[in-house]
Nucleic acid binder design. Structure first.
Lengths: 128, 128
DNA sequence: CTGTATCCGCTGCGATACTG
DNA sequence: CAGTATCGCAGCGGATACAG
């Protein structure tokens, strides 16, 4: 049963923080960076190549945010030239695991969604 | 633009479409709407109450996009006043299942992340 | 190599008002 | 009740230039 006063479990009491965390996922690049690091530690320039399409700025911003949230670690090797390595923390790894089903879903469902979109657009076109 | 087919599983060959699908998830509200509908069909005004904080405009936009992608169905009952009911399709339900681990992760990890953030900010403050 | 800083266009989104 | 239309601002994010 669902009363009018019932609230979304995601947004419910105690769920505010969870919501903030989910907002982290809603960042377009966060998931990609985490997925990229899931294969092993990466240096800045490597990550830039692996996460295709990301700008330097967004990589910096995304990495810092993930470090701040304790999802990835940042290790500086004081050599010349300097070398910075990013790696998933344990928490970050748990995120990767939690996200894995979603990734797979995206792959297996991509076709269906493309079809649905085409059908919808075609119909919309017809009655426009 | 993206001629580079790299190691990244998300962006790899054939992954372009999956990426578009994942972008769907990166919409802040989509997940919440799907989660809300996961408990059963909702009418427009109900959804608006359940998904706390969403504006009418964003609810409309989000719903339509989800309908377009075949994740939810839109059923109009021609009564007065008119009545529109939204429900998860089978595909939409599969998304909900795929997202479930992520939701749970968000809940269980929210505290850790809050702590990590506080620590990071405190340290940043110190060396500012 | 690994960033930081600035400018700035584009769009996401809320607020508001109106329709069927 | 269930939307659509329009305006306006804030912030994302790309391009570029500079620094350690």
């Amino acid at each position: 049963m669902r009363a009018n006063s019932e609230i979304d479990p995601i947004c419910g009491p105690g769920g505010t923080r969870a919501r903030e965390v989910l907002d982290l996922v809603s960042d377009k690049w966060s998931l990609y960076v985490v997925a990229a690091l899931g294969q092993g530690p990466l240096r800045f320039s490597q990550a830039r190549r692996v996460v295709v399409g990301i700008s330097q700025r967004m990589l910096t911003v995304t990495l810092r945010r993930l470090v701040r949230d304790g999802l990835i670690s940042r290790t500086v090797t004081p050599t010349v030239p300097p070398q910075v390595t990013y790696a998933l923390t344990e928490t970050g790894h748990s995120l990767r695991l939690a996200v894995q089903p979603l990734i797979e879903w995206a792959f297996t469902t991509a076709d269906d969604i493309a079809v649905a979109r085409a059908a919808y657009d075609a119909q919309a076109e017809g009655q426009a």
